[in-house]
Simulated assay, not measured.
Amino acid sequence: MDNTLLIEITNPKALGLLHELEELHLIKVLKNKPTQPKLSDKYRGVFTKEDAQSFNDHTQVMRNEWKNI
């Protein structure tokens, strides 16, 4: 079974419970966060070059408008 879950500890007592489960060989606590793909890799090829250029131009215009406020 190869199920990996990412959880957020909201109570310090939960960490103790996780370690107890690990000692019983029911789970394995991973120390490192799973790696996320870079956004540039994730969205590569989603836009055509023309759409990407149009989006980039529009973004630049919006940023310039904010600077002028």
Rank of each mutant, 00 (worst) to 15 (best):
N68K: 15
N68D: 09
A52E: 09
H19A: 04
W66P: 03
V29K: 06
M1I: 10
L15W: 07
P37S: 11
S40Q: 14
T10D: 08
T4R: 15
Q53E: 07
E65Y: 11
E65K: 14
I27E: 06
D57H: 08
N64M: 01
L24D: 07
T10R: 09
V46K: 10
G16H: 01
L15H: 10
V29F: 07
N11D: 14
D51T: 10
N32D: 14
N32V: 05
P12W: 09
K33E: 11
D41C: 00
N56K: 15
L6E: 06
Q60K: 15
I27D: 06
L24T: 00
D41P: 00
K31S: 09
K31M: 06
S40A: 12
K38M: 05
T35M: 04
L15T: 06
E50I: 00
K49R: 15
R63L: 12
S54H: 11
K38W: 03
T10L: 04
K33A: 14
L15V: 02
E23I: 10
W66D: 10
L30F: 12
T59Y: 14
P12I: 01
L15M: 15
K38L: 13
N3E: 13
A14Q: 12
N56R: 13
G45D: 06
E8I: 01
K33C: 00
N56G: 05
L5K: 13
Q60M: 12
Q60H: 07
Q36I: 13
N32A: 13
M1Y: 10
L30Q: 10
N32L: 08
E22I: 00
K13A: 11
D2V: 15
D51C: 08
K49T: 04
P34H: 01
N64Q: 13
F55D: 05
I7N: 00
E23C: 02
L21V: 11
L6N: 01
N11K: 05
K13V: 14
A14E: 01
I27C: 07
F55I: 09
I9T: 10
H58A: 12
T35F: 00
R63A: 08
L17K: 08
E50T: 12
